[in-house]
Amino acid sequence: MTDGAPAALPPDPVQLADIAVELAGRAGALALRYQEAGLSVSSKSSVTDVVTDADRAVEDFLRTALAELRPADSVIGEEAGAAELTGAPVRWVLDPIDGTVNFVLGLPYFAVSIAAQVHGETVAGCVFNPASGELFRAAAGHGAFLGDRRLTGPRSVPLDEAVLTTGFNYDPARRARQGRVAGELLARVGNLRRLGSAALDLCTLAAGRVDLYYEGPLHEWDFAAGLLIATEAGVATSGLRGRPAGTHMVAGAHPERAEEFFGLLTELGVADIG
């Protein structure tokens, strides 16, 4: 910047959310075309951690589109890793298909997840389920929406009436420990759902379709957009033991139930599994 020149304005979260929405719709349509044509499936970290040719094609599409629209930005995605640029105004966090196992099996609970970060903070996000056509979006300070409906978070009900959703790790030993904790939780909450997409689980919480959520460890692309949508809907979130929600743990609840729920998770050792 030269002397006397005005400082560059920070990126507008609403405009970034609009980009995410537009690209998510096109990416979702591409994913469905691959699904209809027949998928090529392989595994990554374990036999249960699967990837398809659609995952890679969708991420390639998103990276190419972002390079055209915003060439100065950085990108990190599940399949191709990071393309970090020094001084980039925005960092995009991509999960081309969150819930790949559901996608492969034809279960209609998977999503394209796109988040935009400025100075390490997520300021815009979109989670799109191509199977249902539901599109969740948020821009920091502007609320969260499902289509045109503003989201206001989960119910405030006693834990023994609350419906909880969670997910399990691909590593068999860690998954076994998570299963034991989930079994203990079943005796303390109303019921449990395991739906298969962290991004959509957070949106489902934001929409009030479930009352509680926890999962960890996670990758940033699993939760970045969904976490913003949940917090913009008024969900209280935590990483447990005084930490903010992040890669180690993401937990969420109605603010009136958060302290009790987070305390229960800590008591049962959820924060120690990762």
Rank of each mutant, 00 (worst) to 15 (best):
T2N: 09
A5H: 05
A7M: 07
P11V: 02
D12T: 09
V14T: 09
A17F: 01
A17D: 07
V21K: 14
A29R: 10
L30E: 07
A31V: 02
A31P: 06
L32R: 02
E36G: 04
L39G: 03
S46Q: 06
V47K: 12
D53I: 15
D53K: 00
A54L: 12
A57I: 12
F61E: 12
R63N: 10
A65T: 15
L69T: 13
L69H: 14
P71E: 11
D73T: 08
S74I: 01
V75L: 08
I76W: 01
I76S: 09
E78S: 05
E78F: 00
E79C: 05
E79Y: 07
G81H: 10
E84H: 12
T86K: 14
G87I: 13
G87Y: 13
P89I: 11
R91A: 13
V93H: 00
L94A: 02
P96Q: 07
P96M: 11
I97F: 01
G99I: 02
V101E: 03
V101N: 04
V101H: 01
F103Q: 00
V104P: 04
L105K: 14
L105Q: 12
F110D: 00
V112T: 10
S113E: 03
A115E: 05
A115M: 03
H119G: 06
V123I: 13
A124Q: 06
V127L: 05
S132A: 07
L135W: 00
F136L: 04
A138W: 06
G141E: 15
H142G: 15
F145Y: 15
R150P: 11
D160I: 08
D160G: 06
E161G: 12
E161H: 04
A162G: 07
L164A: 10
P172I: 14
R174F: 06
R177D: 08
Q178C: 08
G179P: 11
L185R: 03
L185N: 07
A187S: 06
A187R: 13
V189Q: 05
L192D: 10
R194V: 14
R194P: 06
L200V: 05
L200T: 02
D201S: 08
C203P: 05
G208A: 08
R209K: 12
R209H: 12
D211Q: 02
L212P: 04
L212V: 15
L212C: 13
Y214V: 08
H219W: 11
W221R: 02
A224V: 09
A225K: 02
G226H: 02
L227K: 13
L227T: 10
L228N: 03
L228V: 06
E232G: 04
V235E: 01
T237L: 06
R243A: 10
G246P: 09
E259L: 08
T266N: 00
E267T: 09
E267M: 05
G269A: 10
G269S: 07
V270P: 00
D272P: 09
G274R: 04
